[in-house]
Structures are given as C-alpha cells and as structure tokens.
C-alpha cells in the first residue's frame, strides 16, 4: 500500500520535469522510470511506523493509555541482551496479541532502517514503536524516568492507575506474569 502510494506521488512529481524535445523523450521516460523505482525503494525502506520520541513523547504515551495498564520496552540496536528480550517479546505477543506493549529505541531515528530490521526479525514491526529524535538523550531519558541511568534493556510496567514499576536487564516471564497479574505463556 505504502509503496503504491509513493509510486503514484512520484509520477506526479516527475511529470513536471521539462521534456525539451521528442528526440529525448525515450530517454526521459527511461529516466522517469529509474527515478520512480529508486524513490519507491527509498520510500519503501521508510515504510515503518516509528514515531519520533521527543521530551514530550512519554507524557503522550501515558495519556494514550489513560486508565489502562501498559508495558514499555527500551532497547537499542547496539545492545546484545536487548535481542534476547525482543526475541522473547515477539514470541509472547504472538500468543498474547492484546498485551499492551510500547517499544522505544534509544537509537537516533536516522538509524530507523537498521532498527526496523531487528523488529521485523522478531515480528515486532507492527507494534507501537518510537525512536529517540533528539541528540540531547539525557533529557529524553529523564523524561521517561529520572532514576534510569541509561542501561539497556530497560522496561517499565504501568498498572491501570499508572503506578510505575521498572526493571533493568532482560525481562523474564515470571516478572511479566507478576506485573500483568495473570498467567502468560510463550
């Protein structure tokens, strides 16, 4: 869908290129095609659902879950233990698709393509996902939790009254079952 749409937009744009003579028409059409393909590929690679995480985003996330419990998983493409956790979360969500889970990558949003590859591997690419979009990362971390030192993976559980609990390191099934107060299976 995304690909088709960007293709269409692109053709409209390319058509305004001046065609100076019929002699060159063939090569211009060819150029248009190549350009269209290139740009379609480029926009396809941005066909992700990452939202830019700024200093106000965490409040926005909390507001969107007002009155409901939710889980936040912070991760990075540069964190080997995060992969272990993402792998587990992918499997868990397959069996429990309604589990409210929000992903926040601490990588700059310019790295969205490599972050997307990770999420696709674990079938997490359809989940609500944010990426750090401000180089002042200290402020972003502070907006989530002033008591978080930046270690990853880091996770937060908010109950329906938004009482927060936190965990550093890989989450375990026991911890998640305790937080959500129900039996969960992989």
């Amino acid at each position: 869908m995304n690909m088709a749409m960007s293709f269409k937009n692109l053709l409209i744009e390319v058509r305004v290129y001046p065609v100076t003579s019929t002699r060159h028409r063939k090569s211009v059409v060819w150029q248009q095609l190549v350009l269209a393909l290139l740009l379609a590929v480029a926009s396809y690679s941005h066909a992700d659902n990452f939202k830019p995480f700024t200093a106000d985003s965490f409040a926005e996330i909390k507001a969107s879950f007002q009155g409901s419990e939710f889980l936040v998983g912070l991760w990075s493409v540069d964190c080997p233990p995060c992969l272990v956790e993402l792998n587990m979360m992918g499997a868990l969500l397959e069996n429990n698709p309604d589990l409210p889970f929000v992903l926040i990558s601490t990588d700059p949003i310019s790295d969205r393509e490599s972050a997307m590859e990770f999420l696709e591997d674990f079938n997490l690419h359809g989940r609500e996902s944010w990426m750090f979009a401000d180089s002042f990362t200290e402020r972003l971390r502070f907006s989530i939790d002033p008591n978080w030192y930046g270690e990853l993976p880091r996770s937060y559980f908010f109950d329906s009254e938004h009482v927060m609990q936190s965990h550093s390191g890989i989450m375990t099934m026991e911890l998640l079952a305790k937080w959500f107060d129900r039996e969960l299976s992989l």
């Binding site: 540069d78 272990v84 030192y149």
Partner: peptide, 8 residues
Amino acid sequence: QIDACPHH
C-alpha cells in the same frame, strides 16, 4: 547483577 549493557 544485571544482564544488560551499561555502555559505561
């Protein structure tokens, strides 16, 4: 005790 990356 942590199974995580401190980057520190």
